[in-house]
Design a protein around this nucleic acid. Structure first.
Lengths: 353, 353
DNA sequence: CTGTTAGCGCCTTCAG
DNA sequence: CTGAAGGCGCTAACAG
C-alpha cells in the first residue's frame, strides 16, 4: 500500500516521487530502480524486492513523459479530431479507432473540432506539440485544410476518416458514398418513382457531395431528369431536414420518394413524413424513404425506412490500422491510398416487392 | 512554409527539429529561440523574425512533453475512462467533459473500459504514468475499484461520473436516479397500474440499483406490493430487454405498465411492446412505458413513451468542473462531495390525462 | 550484478 | 537584450 501524503519537500505543491527518491529509500542507485521497472533482469532478487517495496510505499509511477524524451522512444499517443462526438456515428468511429489503437498499445487524445477548421488547426498543433505518433482526422472543411497537409504536419503520419480532402496526398478511409447513394436512388427509380427528393448536408462536406453525385448519376443512368427543386442541401440537423421536406411535400410538384444522405437528415425526414401522413387520407400512397447511414431505430420507424448501412466502427479501425502501418514503417514512402468501405442496402420489410 | 523532408542526420528515422537546430539556423542561442516562443519579450525584433523564419523553415514545434518535465509545469491532460463510448449516453458525457476541459485549456485522453475493472485499472495506471492532471472515471464495477481509491491514485485528483463507488471518499456526479425512478413509478401507480414491470441492468451497476430502489420506494409509499417476477435485472443490451419483457407479457400475471431503467432497456421494451401489440386485438389496453434516460427518438416511438430526461453533457461538464477545482487548489482538502443532477419527467403527448 | 556519466528538449537562473 | 550553466525524470552505454 502506498502512503497517502506524498512529500512536498521544497515547493508548496506535492510532486509525485521519482526514481531518485525510490533509490534513496531502497538504498540503491537510480539505475537499479530503473532496471527493476524495466523487468528486473540482471538485478539481485533481494534488491528487486527492496526496490519494489520502496516504490509501493512511495506510490511511485514511471513518468512516461520523461521516458518518451529519450532517443528512440515514442509517446504512445494518437491524436484524433472528430467533428462532433455527440453524433452516434462518430462515437462508433472513435470506438473503432480506440480498439485498434489499444491493440497496438497506443492511447488516444481526442478533440472535437465542432466543424470549425480553426479549432481543428489548434487541436492538430497541440497534438503535434505533444508528439503524438500519428493523427486521425475527420476533416471539418476541405476548403480550409492547409494545416492538414503533409508539409504542415511534418513527419507526423496522418489519415483522414470518413471525409476526403481533395488535393492532399493523404491516406483516407471512406465509405462507398457514391455507390451507396447510387444503389439507393436506383432502387427508388426502379420502383417507378420519378420525383425523388434529396436531403443532405451543406455541400462543403464532401461526403455529402459524393452522395449527391450518386443520386444524380443514378438519375442519368435511368434517363430520369432531376427536379432541382427537390434537391435540398444545407441541413446539418434534423430540425432543418424536417422543415425542408415538409416544404417539399406541400409543393405542387411533390416528391413521391425521399433519399436522405445522412442520419440527421433521415431523422428529420421520418418526422416530416409521419406528420404529413396524418394530414392526408389514410389511403394516400406511402412516401418512400431510404436513408444513408445505419440507424439503430430503423425497425421502429413509424414510416417504412430502408437504409444504406455501413459500419463506422470498422471505418475507425481501418483508419487506425493504416496509420499504425505508417508509424511502424516511417521510411517506406508508399504513396497515399484511399480505401472505400462497402455499404449494404437494407430494405425495410414493409417496402414494396 | 516548412521544408518537407525533416533531417534525419544520425539515426535512421527522422526526428522533429529542436530548439538547438532552430538556434543554429537562426544564428542565435537556444535560449533566444525559447524566448521567442515564450512570447518574444526582451528579444530584439530582428532576432525575433530571424528565429521565426528558421522555425517555420524547419517546421519546428515546441515539445510539450519536454516542457512539462520542468518544475512547476503540468501536462495539460485529463484522463477519461468510459465504459462504452458507443452508447450515445456516454458519447454526450465525453462531449461535456471535453467542452469544459477545453475551456481550461486541457486535452483529454480517453479509454473504454468495456465494463471491465481490470482494463480500467490498466487505463488509469497508464494515465497516471503520463502525468494527467486529473481523472474522470465512469466506474466499471464498484466491487473491484481499489485502483480508484485516493491512496492508489496518489496525488492525482479523481472524479466519478454517472456511477457512485460506495466506500471511496471521491467527488462524484450523478443524476437523481432514485428520485427519477420514484417519480416515474409513482406516475404509473397514480394512473392506477398495479403490475409494473422493472427492466434494468445487472445490479452491480449501482446506478441500476438506485433506480430499482426508487421503483421499490414508490410502491411502498403507494401501498402497492412489488410483484418480484416483474423485476428483471441483468439486461445490458436491448436484445436482452426485449426478450425479458416478451416473457413477462406472455406471463399469466402480465404487467400493464413498464418502467425501464436505461436507454438500452427502453429500446428493447419498445420492440417487445410493439411486437406484442400486433399479436393481440387492436382494442386491447395499451401497455404503458416510461424509460429512464433521454431518448432522441421518443416522439417517433410506435408506442407511447414517457421519459425521465436528464442531460449527460451537463453531467460531464460538471464532473470536469469539480475536477478542475481540485486541480487548481490541490492543497485545499475539502472533503469529497456528491452532486446529484436533476431529472425531468417528460410525458408522451399520447399518455393518459 | 551495480553504479557513474551523460544527454533526451526545454527553460529558470544568473552573468554579461 | 543575450548567452552559459544546470537540472526536470529517465535510461543507454560504459565502467567496475
Amino acid at each position: 500500500m502506498s502512503e497517502s501524503g506524498d512529500d512536498a519537500h521544497p515547493s508548496g505543491i506535492p510532486r509525485p516521487p521519482t526514481v531518485k527518491e525510490v533509490a534513496e529509500r531502497a538504498g540503491v542507485s537510480p539505475m537499479t530502480v530503473s532496471r527493476v521497472f524495466a523487468g528486473g533482469a540482471n538485478v539481485r532478487p533481494e534488491l528487486r524486492t527492496r526496490v519494489a517495496r520502496a516504490a509501493a510505499e512511495l506510490g511511485y509511477r514511471r513518468n512516461e513523459n520523461a521516458r518518451s524524451l529519450r532517443p528512440g522512444h515514442k509517446s504512445g499517443l494518437i491524436g484524433v479530431t472528430i467533428t462532433n462526438i455527440a453524433n452516434p456515428y462518430y462515437a462508433e468511429l472513435q470506438r473503432g479507432i480506440e480498439d485498434a489503437a489499444a491493440k497496438a498499445n497506443r492511447r488516444i487524445l481526442v478533440g472535437n473540432s465542432n466543424e470549425d477548421p480553426a479549432l481543428e488547426r489548434q487541436l492538430v498543433a497541440d497534438f503535434i506539440g505533444r508528439r503524438v505518433e500519428g493523427l486521425i482526422v475527420v476533416p471539418a472543411d476541405p476548403a480550409h485544410s492547409e494545416h492538414l497537409s503533409p508539409e504542415s504536419v511534418g513527419t507526423t503520419p496522418i489519415v483522414f476518416a470518413s471525409r476526403p480532402v481533395p488535393g492532399l496526398a493523404v491516406d483516407t478511409v471512406l465509405v462507398d458514398d457514391v455507390g451507396g447513394a447510387y444503389a439507393a436512388t436506383s432502387r427508388l427509380l426502379d420502383e417507378g418513382h420519378q420525383r425523388i427528393a434529396f436531403l443532405g448536408t451543406r455541400t462543403s462536406v464532401l461526403t455529402g457531395q459524393r452522395r449527391l453525385q450518386g443520386y444524380r448519376t443514378a438519375h442519368r443512368d435511368h434517363n430520369v431528369p432531376v427536379y432541382e427543386h427537390l434537391v435540398r442541401t444545407g441541413q446539418q440537423e434534423a430540425a432543418g431536414a424536417e422543415r425542408a421536406l415538409a416544404e417539399l411535400l406541400a409543393h405542387e410538384i411533390a416528391p413521391t420518394a425521399v433519399f436522405s444522405a445522412n442520419n440527421r437528415n433521415t431523422l428529420g425526414a421520418i418526422r416530416a413524413i409521419a406528420r404529413f401522413r396524418s394530414s392526408v387520407p389514410a389511403d394516400s400512397p406511402e412516401v418512400r424513404l431510404i436513408g444513408f447511414d445505419s440507424f439503430e431505430f430503423a425497425d421502429l420507424s413509424p414510416v417504412p425506412l430502408s437504409i444504406v448501412a455501413h459500419d463506422p466502427g470498422a471505418l475507425g479501425r481501418r483508419a487506425a490500422e493504416l496509420l499504425l502501418a505508417r508509424i511502424d514503417h516511417p521510411t517506406q514512402t508508399k504513396s497515399a491510398q484511399t480505401v472505400e468501405l462497402p455499404v449494404e442496402l437494407q430494405l425495410d420489410p414493409r417496402a414494396p416487392e
